[in-house]
């Protein structure tokens, strides 16, 4: 029963990683860059929800919507001001800019909200679920996190496969020049990608801080890196890959902590990543590199 409980917690943590990983993987797939500031957008989202609920007296759903809006605007602004001017630049220049943007967000948060951790109030106030005569207890935030992940995944898959914008994204991801020749506005497509990733980051912020209620300016950093790992693990650029990588990573982390070593939990996660990449360099669901043109 303890194993089952660990497994559920692992899936829940993994779902948070998966939602964050979506932001990494979509931006990588479409804009061909690693947005290392993505984790910090989560932190900003969490702070907005915190402030909305604690200081501004907003009902929780309104605070969440506000956070999604702020993060969307933030993500699009970052893209426009910091990344778009570098579209023709080398990958390294963009990477360093993204790392710089990450620190800029963290330090700005430090300036506004201070270094003291805030206790994030969970907006999910329903009782925990007691199964098997009370042996398996599932907290509401755990369940909601998993559900949210499933809903987001389905919605996003439909969006990518059915809508005009979704299809435009796939085209830009495959061949930016050919996409332009179809009449697709590449800049707008990239901007929308950042908007979606950032709105999801706000949701991830909510879910993350509901389960792990310590909020400080570096809150988004470690989950961000792990979600990036999850995206690589699943095959960067692949949406189902982000889902699979995230959930597996969460399960490995929780089970590793429970059965191997609490201290080595993170190390185990990265060790598994290295092994997977040795065997499958493009990740679990990554597209094999095309050899002929």
């Amino acid at each position: 029963m303890i194993f089952l409980s660990n497994l559920v917690n692992g899936i829940s943590l993994g779902s948070i990683y998966a939602i964050i990983a979506l932001g990494y993987t979509m931006v990588y797939g479409i804009a061909k860059m690693l947005n290392f500031a993505h984790g910090d957008v989560i932190m900003v989202g969490a702070y907005i929800i915190f402030c909305g609920a604690q200081y501004w007296g907003l009902p929780a759903p309104v605070a969440v919507l506000l956070a999604m809006l702020v993060c969307t605007v933030l993500g699009m602004t970052i893209e426009k001001l910091a990344y778009k001017p570098l579209r023709q630049a080398t990958g390294l220049a963009v990477l360093i800019t993204a790392i710089g943007m990450s620190y800029l967000l963290q330090n700005t948060a430090l300036l506004i909200w201070g270094a003291n951790p805030k206790v994030f109030p969970s907006p999910f106030s329903t009782d925990a679920l007691h199964l098997f005569g009370g042996e398996l207890v599932i907290k509401p935030e755990t369940l909601i996190t998993i559900l949210a992940n499933v809903v987001i995944m389905i919605a996003l898959s439909l969006f990518i496969s059915r809508t005009k914008m979704g299809k435009a994204m796939r085209c830009v991801s495959e061949d930016r020049g050919a996409a332009e020749l179809m009449g697709i506005n590449v800049n707008r497509t990239i901007s929308v990608t950042f908007a979606i990733g950032s709105a999801l980051a706000a949701i991830a912020g909510l879910l993350l801080c509901s389960s792990y209620p310590m909020l400080q300016p570096t809150t988004g950093s470690m989950p961000g890196i792990k979600a990036f790992t999850a995206a690589v693990f699943g095959g960067i650029g692949s949406i189902p890959g982000a889902m699979l990588g995230g959930v597996l990573l969460g399960i490995i982390e929780i089970l590793g902590k429970a059965y191997i070593s609490t201290e080595l939990g993170d190390a185990i996660v990265f060790a598994v990543l290295i092994v997977v990449l040795l065997v499958r360099p493009t990740g679990l669901l990554g597209k094999p590199v095309r050899e002929k043109v």
Binding site: K164, R170, C171, E174, D175, G177, A178, M182, R290
Partner: peptide
């Protein structure tokens, strides 16, 4: 070099052609 969208179906490629 054609530059068709390799991972899309034939029909989807044509659909993208009428994007405009």
């Amino acid at each position: 070099g054609r530059r068709i969208f390799q991972q899309m179906t034939v029909k989807e490629n044509l659909e993208m052609g009428s994007f405009s």
